[in-house]
Amino acid sequence: MKTLKTATILAILSFFTLAFTVKTDGYKVGDKIENFKLKNIDDKMVSLSDYKAAKGFIIIFTCNMCPYSVANEDRIIALDAKYKTKGYPVIAINPNDPNVSTGDGFEDMKVRAAEKRFTFPYLFDAKQDVFPKFGALKTPHVYIVTKNTMKVEYIGAIDNSSKNADAVTEKYVEDAVDALLVGKKPEKTETRAIGCSIKVDEKTYK
């Protein structure tokens, strides 16, 4: 009887461990990331290893339709303008399933990128197998990665005023990249902001 009880408790415990680790899966600060290869809006495949001269990457999960992404578009363009030449280009990735999020399809991405004149790749996670590796949960969601170690140095928001660029008082991503550029660790490595959940088809996803 006692062993049965213990077995039941163990089973319950392992169930809970499983149930709770599913969501927290994904890269943490300090983790080494795998390279990925995704299709860009110019129909060419882009991979991190293509960037021979880069020191690192500002990887941003974003999309066309989320108002928080839209509110950050100009800031994403500005980040690329400021840091691409310094060795930290922006790599934008749309993680959404367009069947669930109308307007987030590959052709829609081309249109939006042309309208806003994106200077960075805007990749489509068509199989939705890249964003879960990162553990991205929303758009926008930023990951800063250094190239020589391929380690995550920062996860979070672009700055401290996601919905209103005029009220920004702390530029998290800029501060982190500036630190990395002079060989320091970012002071803030994790921040949060409101965003749109990444859209998956509950019936077919995984």
């Binding site: 969501k23 927290t24 949960l137 929303k138 969601h141 979070g156 928001a157 401290n160 005023s161 996601s162 209103n164 009220a167 921040t191 949060r192 902001a193 409101i194 965003g195 749109c196 959940s197 990444i198």
Partner: peptide, 20 residues
């Protein structure tokens, strides 16, 4: 409230900030 980094955590430590 502009201090999203503060209150999202305060509401729940596990919340990334995604809605719903």
């Amino acid at each position: 409230d502009i201090n999203e980094d503060v209150w999202i955590k305060a509401i729940n430590e596990s919340w990334s900030g995604a809605i719903p």
